[in-house]
Design a protein around this nucleic acid. Structure first.
Length: 602
RNA sequence: GCCACCUUAGCUCAACGGCAGAGCAAACGCUUCGUAAGCGUUAGGUUUUGGGUUCAAAUCCCAAAGGUGGCUCCA
């Protein structure tokens, strides 16, 4: 998000001013357009319009050219303060502006649509050339502070956006633009955008043969190809081992459950917008499970529990199905069926803090091992206005306090955001950004007093009384699908060796070296390494070119000299040529790299 | 779900009312080669699907499906 220094910067004023200039040019192109709001954003600005017809590429090119002309006109941005009534007169034929003026006068929302508490005493208008906008500023003093060759509004397509972000209100056309102080900075930005698109997990996943989608199977339902399945399975086995070391016990549960289970949990109806319709079997109704917790709870309830048994930690890679609006589906990061590396911890109130902290540390260990550092922590609490949560206020307060306390204990930088809780409790989420700067929630730890109450969970305490356990829901990856999507982009397909679906490719120089290549491959495979032999008839240079495209960590070239020395010539993914080394030496090196889960190649 | 755009060979794309093409990948043949792509041949298509306009549609129109960018949602 834009920070304070950005909001004070010249760049911010340039972009804010460019948004006004775009609106001026748009009104020339579409005289009947109604204007809404046009703030600067992280990488540029936008302006929302109600247009009489869809904007075309030609329109956008025309507007961009016209913007440059306006900028070259060296118009001053002048400001004046007016009363609400004067402002209403200025914008008499602009209904969105009138609504904003009314809200400003009442102190509800500012001109960028952000909440404010204070009624505006004065309304400010900024004018450049022929265009006047309701605006608090700041702006550049004159359009000559804007470089006409450092603006662009055609790099991004026009998009739909609801007025005031409310899907029940008018849908407007949002035109995105960006502006920089110099043309070189603009070019650099556009170049970085292109690079980001190349890094997109959907592009890299296709290139590396990791996964695919089939309309016949269904949208939002990823199909893992062998190489993707190896990557996924490697992650799963690793985490399973780590969890067992940390006192988790594996459980396995089915993909559907009786509707009554979800009535008790509250998923039905509190989660019903995200669920598929019930499946009717004989006279009973079943749901595809949207979460694993109710099933795990039934395992907890299958036995009498003593305080001596707690904490109980049940872990499952559980596949869940959620209805997502079709427009929201996105590669692997937003799908309709996905596998959660789920665990549910049943703890005594006294154990809660320690277990929560330990769960967060396990997540930190997972992220650190993979070198993931670019994330933020968010404490999601209830939206006090909403009725989509179950449970008493006091239980929510206990849970929220526990999470805040744990964050302080861990000295974890975090934000607290309302409306980001689960329906049964508050949570600590780890949020990553993809290459296109979209935010995705991965790991999560949640404190839950509500489901134990709804299911009447108990344990027998030291004093022989029946007590209620607290639940912790936690998932380090969040979902395997989303996590791998982010990993693909983070590593740009150059995964650490231990995760790489193919770790080594043998490249025999001619056919007569294939047998030796097969021998070395067999020897390496016996050590658990994933090795392929490229016995194709391409020349060595072509084989190298092809395999470096898909980021094979080690290319082992073998020819007469290598055979004579019982060696392999090692070329790294980084294009470093290590030259010939004895097979045993290579073996030692790669085994160490794999065992250490190293991010390096040697 | 909403707005806009897109859909041509396995992949990336061209043809933009008048004979459906290229590169890569594949198969086959030649080449046997020391660190970023050797040569040739062949095969591969109801141009996403269904309607319509037209002498003629990949191309224009309508609808559906899928995808992309946003918005909304993500309990």
């Amino acid at each position: 998000m834009p920070d304070v220094s950005y909001k004070d910067s010249q760049l911010y004023r340039v972009r804010h001013s460019a948004a006004h200039i775009m609106a001026e040019a748009m009104l020339e192109r579409f005289p009947k357009a109604k204007i809404a709001i046009g703030p600067p954003i992280e990488d540029g600005f936008y302006y929302d319009f109600e247009l009489p017809r869809p904007a075309t590429d030609e329109d956008m090119q025309w507007v961009e050219n016209r913007m440059k002309e306006i900028i070259r006109g060296n118009y001053a941005f002048s400001v004046r303060e007016v009363s609400a009534d004067e402002a209403r007169a200025v914008f008499a034929d602009q209904p969105y502006k009138l609504e904003l003026i009314n809200d400003l006068a009442d102190g509800r929302v500012d001109e960028n649509g952000e909440q404010t508490a204070v009624p505006a005493e004065k309304i400010t208008l900024y004018t450049q050339d022929t265009f006047t906008d309701l605006c608090r500023g700041p702006h550049v003093a004159s359009t000559k502070e804007i470089n006409p060759n450092a603006i662009n509004i055609t790099y991004k397509m026009p998009a739909g956006a609801y007025w005031r972000g409310d899907e029940n209100r008018q849908q407007l056309t949002r035109i995105y633009g960006t502006a920089f102080e110099t043309p070189a900075e603009l070019q650099d930005y556009l170049h970085r955008l292109e690079e980001a698109k190349r890094r997109d997990h959907r592009v890299v996943g296709e290139k590396l043969g990791l996964f695919t989608f089939s309309p016949l199977v269904g949208k939002g339902l990823p199909l893992w190809k062998p190489k993707g399945a190896i990557l996924r399975d490697t992650l799963e086995r690793w985490l399973r081992d780590v969890q067992i070391e940390n006192g988790y016990e594996p459980v396995v549960t089915p993909h559907i459950g009786n509707l009554n289970l979800y009535r008790t949990s509250g998923h039905y109806p509190y989660y019903s917008d995200s669920q598929y319709d019930p499946i009717v079997v004989d006279d009973e109704e079943f749901l595809l499970k949207p979460m694993n917790c109710p099933h795990h709870i039934q395992i907890y309830k299958s036995e009498m529990r003593s305080y001596r048994d707690l904490p109980v930690r049940y872990a499952e890679f559980g596949t869940v199905y959620r209805y997502e609006q079709s427009g929201e589906l996105h590669g692997l990061t937003r799908v309709r069926g996905f596998t959660v590396d789920d665990a549910h911890l049943f703890v005594t109130p006294e154990q809660l803090l320690e277990e929560f902290v330990t769960a967060v540390r396990l997540i930190q260990y997972v992220f650190n091992t993979l070198g993931l550092t670019d994330f933020r922590a968010r404490v999601g609490v209830r939206d006090p206005q909403s009725d989509k949560y179950v449970g008493d206020d006091s239980l929510w307060q206990n849970a929220t306090d526990a999470i805040i306390q744990a964050c302080q204990y861990l000295e974890l930088d975090h934000t607290v955001e309302e409306g980001e809780a689960a329906f049964y409790g508050p949570k600590l989420d780890f949020i990553f950004r993809d290459v296109l700067k979209r935010n995705w929630q991965l790991g999560t730890v949640q404190v839950d007093y509500n489901l134990p109450a709804r299911f009447e969970l108990e344990y027998v305490a030291e004093d022989n009384t029946r007590q209620r356990p607290v639940m912790i829901h936690r998932a380090p990856f969040g979902s395997l699908e989303r996590f791998i999507g982010i990993l693909i982009e983070h590593f740009d397909g150059k995964f650490p060796v231990w995760l790489m679906p193919v770790q080594v490719v043998m490249i025999p120089i001619t056919d007569k070296h294939v047998e030796y290549a097969n021998q070395v491959a067999a020897r390496l495979r016996a050590q658990g390494l994933r090795v392929e032999v490229d016995a194709g008839k391409s020349r060595m240079g072509a084989k190298i070119a092809q395999h470096r495209e898909i980021h094979i960590p080690y290319l082992l070239i073998v020819g007469d000299k290598d055979i004579a020395a019982n060696a392999v010539s090692v070329r790294l993914r980084s294009d470093e040529d290590l030259g010939a080394m004895p097979v045993s030496e290579f073996e030692t090196m790669i085994e160490r790299v794999v065992a250490e889960k190293s991010l390096e190649l040697k």
